[in-house]
């Protein structure tokens, strides 16, 4: 703090604040203020489309104890955790391959190829999964025209599994990048040292590579978990509206029922779930890295 008294630093602080102020002001007005409004709404009362200044915790009690809401939140959590698990397990070997086995000059090409689908037409990709997995979809019609099955398979469409496959595909590239970055940071001589000291390749991986890449895995978990738990399109298109998740429930309360207070309580609850999971994983990460530091 004493260093802030230095006039040079004070001038630097002023210039820095002036420089960041336009962007910061925008974020405060259009992000912080709306989030604060939602937080406020969540403890107010909503009647006939109007929010009135009657403080209550009733919205939260309804969201956390109502059977319908509980089922939907539990489904969102199951889907998000399932997607995260599948995505990270599939992504790890790819990140490992690109980091350890691809020539340095070709690494950015591989990463570019992997990330392209992530940036393109999210909506259309989700819809294509509906077309692929649907009752009269590509898989069923394909298998039937070849003669492998006689009637359409039903276990591949309109269930939680279909939601997980679609979302895992949509967010797959996002998991690879952080894992790749953490693998790139590993000092390769540590791996050689492990093998020189008589460890097998598998044990070197288990005891050196994996623990050291854990920060990337944790980042991947968060970066996949957060958007999937709030996904709106997939439950609507793939679930056929029969498997709503938190985002769909938010839409119904905010716009269709026009109960903004309850909708806000759902939004805050969703942020709370995300926050708890995030903190949990960050703590886990600290424990993982603790002994090595």
């Amino acid at each position: 703090m004493a260093r802030m008294q230095d006039p040079g630093l004070r001038r630097e602080a002023r210039s820095g604040l002036a420089m960041v102020s336009p962007t910061l002001l925008y974020a405060v007005l259009l992000l912080a203020a709306p989030l604060a409004t939602v937080l406020l709404y969540s403890v107010l009362t909503s009647a006939r489309g109007q929010v009135s200044w009657d403080f209550t915790l009733g919205n939260y009690i309804e969201v956390w104890t109502g059977p319908v809401y509980r089922a939907i939140m539990l489904r969102s959590l199951t889907v998000a955790l399932g997607v995260t698990l599948v995505t990270v397990l599939i992504a790890y070997p790819i990140a490992y391959f690109v980091s350890m086995h691809v020539e340095p000059s070709k690494k950015s090409l591989w990463l570019f190829l992997i990330t392209i689908p992530f940036w393109t037409s999210y909506l259309i990709r989700v819809f294509l999964w509906k077309v692929i997995l649907g009752y009269n979809g590509v898989i069923n019609s394909g298998l039937m025209s070849v003669g492998i099955i006689d009637e359409p398979l039903q276990w591949i469409n309109y269930n939680v599994g279909a939601l997980i496959v679609t979302l895992a595909h949509a967010y797959a590239p996002f998991a690879i990048l952080p894992i790749f970055v953490s693998l790139e940071k590993i000092d390769r001589s540590l791996l050689e040292a492990g093998q020189d000291l008589g460890e097998s390749k598998l044990r070197t991986f288990w005891r050196v590579t994996l623990p050291l890449s854990m920060p990337g895995v944790i980042a991947a978990v968060l970066i996949v978990f957060i958007p999937t738990i709030g996904d709106y399109v997939t439950p609507d298109l793939i679930g056929g509206g029969k498997l709503p998740m938190i985002a769909n429930m938010m839409e119904v309360q905010m716009l269709k029922v026009n109960n903004k207070a309850l909708g806000s309580a759902i939004a805050v609850s969703a942020m709370l779930i995300v926050g708890i999971v995030a903190v949990g994983f960050v703590l886990l990460n600290r424990r993982f890295l603790g002994p090595q530091k």
Binding site: V20, T23, L24, A27, V28, L30, L31, A32, A33, P34, L35, T37, V38, Y41, L222, I223, I226, P227, I229, G230, D231, Y232, I246, A247, M250, E251, M254, K260, G263, S264, A267, A270, M271, V274, A278
Partner: peptide, 20 residues
């Protein structure tokens, strides 16, 4: 705060903006 939208479900960004 500036980077927050990156780690916030988009639905929450949209709904809170809509409410305001």
């Amino acid at each position: 705060l500036i980077m927050l939208p990156l780690v916030l479900p988009e639905m929450i960004v949209a709904m809170s903006l809509l409410v305001v």
